[in-house]
């Protein structure tokens, strides 16, 4: 047994492909077009999303792991990949029925969705959620003030 009490962050990546459309009910048609540009086109568009999930915790003295990655994988599959892969976020995810599924809102929602179930995996906590809409854009929520 090696007692290494230092906290380590472990990060796992999953991918899903989904459609969305940027359109806010709180903006006029013209404002929607101006603010969102091409992303406002009526029939939507899609992305190959990538989600990085970082989990912090002490390294277990027996297993040498923060968490069992198989458990994290099962959780991410159930909560994220199965419901979102090949979906239309505006129509298939209730949360986005009236909220624009921007990269930012997706990251916030995924944080809320994953925080408790990740903590229940063991002596660990969700540390960061990073949603990549393309190789050139990501939104990131990290544990800090208020979280």
């Amino acid at each position: 047994m090696v007692n290494d009490s230092a906290w380590v962050r472990i990060q796992r990546t999953v991918r899903f492909s989904a459609a969305h459309r940027y359109h806010s009910e709180q903006l006029s048609e013209e404002e929607n077009r101006r603010v969102f540009g091409k992303c406002n086109r009526p029939h939507g568009h899609g992305h190959n999303y990538r989600l990085d999930v970082g989990v912090d915790g002490p390294v277990d003295a027996v297993t040498g792991m923060v968490i069992n990655l198989a458990d994290l994988d099962a959780l991410l599959k159930e909560k994220v990949v199965e419901p979102l892969d090949h979906s239309f976020l505006n129509y298939d995810v209730e949360h986005f029925a009236h909220i624009v599924p921007t990269c930012e809102n997706l990251a916030s929602w995924l944080w809320e969705l994953l925080e408790e179930p990740v903590a229940s995996l063991g002596n660990c906590r969700l540390a960061v959620v990073r949603v990549w809409e393309s190789e050139e854009l990501f939104a990131e929520v990290e544990r800090g003030e208020g979280r």
């Binding site: 806010s24 709180q26 969102f36 540009g37 624009v100 921007t102 930012e104 809102n105 854009l137 939104a139």
Partner: peptide, 18 residues
């Protein structure tokens, strides 16, 4: 370039891309 701030609740955006 990593920006930090509040999301505008009307648009869902931290910043307008263009």
């Amino acid at each position: 370039v990593v920006f930090e701030g509040e999301v505008d609740p009307r648009t869902g955006l931290l910043l307008e891309r263009e």
